[in-house]
Simulated scan of single mutants.
Amino acid sequence: MKRFVLIIASVYGSLSVVLGAMGAHALKSVLSVDKLQSFETGVRYMIIHALVLLIVGFVFDYQTRLQKSMGWSFIVGTFLFSISIFFLSLADTLGMSLGFLGPITPLGGLLMITGWILLLFNVLKMDNTELKT
């Protein structure tokens, strides 16, 4: 799982740079200011959580259920949150009705919050020798 977390961190990091550039250049003339701001929010949360996954990927060994749950919460939460925002921002431009994605965004946010809380629990379970390494 450790390798998987680091792979996803790399994918999210690169994807956020590509999508950020796309938003800053290609989509700037296509999307309204509100839609572009939403798109940028998805990018911002994706890059932040790519960095979080990178850090927790190196810190934890993912041998416990608590650590695995934290990793999955960050991975799935970031995917649901950011991807739903990207598609909702582009719905009008794509000529698609994607309103069904609306409830997905807060679900992704809830999973990201869960990941942060599980990170806290994981850190509280660490002993001093683990914190020194």
Rank of each mutant, 00 (worst) to 15 (best):
M1V: 09
K2C: 04
V5R: 02
I7N: 09
I8R: 01
V11Q: 11
V11S: 11
G13H: 12
S14E: 07
S16L: 15
V17S: 11
V17R: 10
V18T: 11
G20L: 14
G20C: 14
G20H: 14
A21M: 15
M22L: 15
M22G: 13
A24L: 05
A24E: 11
H25Q: 09
H25D: 12
A26R: 02
L27Y: 06
L27D: 01
S29C: 02
S29N: 14
L31P: 01
V33N: 07
V33E: 13
V33R: 10
D34P: 00
Q37V: 06
S38A: 11
F39S: 05
F39R: 03
E40L: 07
T41Y: 06
T41H: 12
T41C: 02
G42T: 05
G42P: 05
G42E: 09
V43S: 12
V43G: 03
V43A: 11
R44H: 06
R44L: 13
R44E: 11
Y45Q: 08
Y45R: 04
M46Y: 01
I48W: 15
I48Y: 15
H49C: 08
H49R: 04
H49W: 02
L51Y: 14
L51N: 11
V52D: 05
L54D: 06
I55Y: 08
V56W: 04
V56N: 00
G57N: 10
F58L: 10
F58S: 02
V59F: 12
F60P: 10
D61Q: 15
Y62F: 15
Q63D: 09
T64A: 06
T64L: 04
T64R: 04
L66M: 05
L66Q: 09
K68M: 05
K68Y: 01
M70V: 06
M70A: 05
G71S: 09
S73E: 09
V76D: 00
V76C: 03
V76L: 14
G77A: 10
G77Q: 14
T78H: 09
F79G: 06
I83Q: 10
S84F: 10
I85F: 01
F86N: 07
F86Q: 05
F87E: 00
F87M: 01
F87A: 00
F87L: 07
F87R: 00
L88G: 00
S89D: 04
L90F: 03
A91S: 13
A91Q: 07
A91D: 05
D92G: 00
T93I: 06
L94C: 03
L94R: 02
M96R: 03
L98I: 01
G99K: 09
F100S: 11
F100D: 04
P103T: 00
P103K: 07
T105P: 08
T105R: 08
P106L: 13
L107Q: 03
L107P: 01
G108P: 06
G109W: 05
G109C: 13
G109D: 12
G109I: 01
L110T: 14
M112Q: 07
M112H: 04
I113L: 15
T114Y: 12
G115E: 04
W116Y: 10
I117H: 06
I117D: 05
I117N: 08
L118P: 12
L118C: 04
L119T: 13
L119S: 12
L119A: 11
L120V: 12
L120Y: 13
L120W: 14
F121G: 03
F121P: 03
N122P: 07
N122S: 15
L124D: 12
L124Q: 13
K125R: 15
D127C: 08
T129P: 02
E130R: 12
L131H: 06
T133Y: 08
T133Q: 14
